[in-house]
C-alpha cells in the first residue's frame, strides 16, 4: 500500500491548477430551517490548496452550510462566490468547479458503481474518452475497480462512502465539499482518506470537510472553523500538534452554548 487509495501512476490527477484565489467566499450567509435560523451571518474564505475542517455539535448548522456551498440549498441572505463568481446567480458553476459528498452518501440503488460514475460525469458535461479516462482513474484510486459492476444498492456503507467520494472527485473539482467523509470507513480506509485529501490539497484543490471527529481535523486540516447554533465562533489556522488545544476550544464553545441555553 502506498498511501492507501493513492497510486503513483495516478498522480497526474493532482496536477497543479492555476491559482484562482479565493476558491470559495461566503459573505454574511444566512439560512432559516423549520422556522429557526440554522446558519447566521456566516462569512468564510477558502484558498486553493487549503483544507478547512468544519466542526460543531449536532444541529450546529454544518450540513446546512455545506448544502448551501454545494448549491443544493439556497441561502436566505448573503452571497456565495465560487472562484470569484457569484454562485447564486450562476449555479451552473458547480458543474465543473465543485464536488460534493453529502452525509450518508446517497446513491441510486439501481445503478452499478460504473454507471454511477458515468451518470455523474455526464451530468457534469463529460463525454467519451475524457469520461472513460477520469472514471477509470478514480475507480483505481478509490480501489473500486473490483466493484465496478456491482449495484450500489448492495454495497456496504463503507463502499457506498467510497463511491460517493469517487463521484465527488471524478471531474477533478477545484472545491471538494465533504460531509462526514470518514463515516463507516475502517481505520485503514480512514488513513487512506487522509492521504488522499493531503494529495488533493497539495495539487491545489480546496477542501472543506465537516466532521464530529476532532482527530480527523487535526490529521488533515490546516484550518479549523467551529460553528455553534448556526454562528461561526472560531476560525483559525491549525497545526498538527494542536489537538489538545483544539479539543479545549471546541468544548469551551459547545458547553458555553449549552450553559446559556440552560
Amino acid at each position: 500500500m502506498s498511501n492507501g487509495w493513492g497510486h503513483p501512476d495516478n498522480q497526474a490527477m493532482n496536477a497543479p491548477k492555476p491559482a484562482l484565489p479565493p476558491v470559495l467566499q461566503l459573505e454574511d450567509v444566512g439560512r432559516q430551517r423549520a422556522g429557526r435560523p440554522a446558519v447566521r451571518d456566516l462569512s468564510l474564505r477558502l484558498e486553493a490548496g487549503q483544507v478547512l475542517g468544519l466542526l460543531g455539535v449536532n444541529g450546529a448548522g454544518k450540513s446546512t452550510t455545506l448544502a448551501m456551498i454545494a448549491g443544493a440549498l439556497r441561502p436566505d441572505k448573503g452571497a456565495i462566490r465560487l472562484q470569484g463568481q457569484d454562485f447564486l446567480e450562476h449555479p451552473e458553476l458547480a458543474r465543473l468547479a465543485l464536488g460534493w459528498l453529502p452525509e450518508g452518501a446517497p446513491l441510486w440503488p439501481e445503478l452499478t458503481v460504473r454507471e454511477h460514475l458515468d451518470a455523474h460525469g455526464q451530468l457534469r458535461g463529460l463525454r467519451g474518452a475524457d469520461l472513460n479516462r477520469l472514471r477509470d482513474a478514480v475507480l483505481e484510486r478509490l480501489e473500486l475497480k473490483d466493484l465496478a459492476r456491482r449495484l450500489a444498492g448492495v454495497l456496504s456503507q463503507g463502499q457506498r462512502q467510497r463511491l460517493g467520494l469517487a463521484c465527488a472527485l471524478l471531474h477533478r473539482p477545484a472545491l471538494l465539499v465533504l460531509d462526514e467523509p470518514a463515516n463507516a470507513l475502517d481505520p485503514i480506509q480512514v488513513v487512506a482518506l487522509r492521504g488522499l485529501l493531503r494529495e488533493l490539497a497539495a495539487g491545489g484543490t480546496a477542501v472543506i470537510l465537516s466532521t464530529h471527529q476532532l482527530a480527523e481535523v487535526t490529521a488533515v486540516c490546516d484550518r479549523v472553523a467551529i460553528l455553534h447554533e448556526g454562528t461561526l465562533r472560531y476560525d483559525a489556522p491549525l497545526h498538527a500538534d494542536e489537538h489538545a488545544a483544539l479539543e479545549k476550544t471546541f468544548f469551551d464553545i459547545a458547553m458555553a452554548g449549552r450553559t446559556q441555553a440552560a
Partner: peptide, 10 residues
C-alpha cells in the same frame, strides 16, 4: 436523498 445531488450538479 439523491435529489440534492442533481441540484449540486448545477
Amino acid at each position: 436523498g439523491t435529489l440534492p445531488l442533481l441540484f449540486a450538479s448545477g
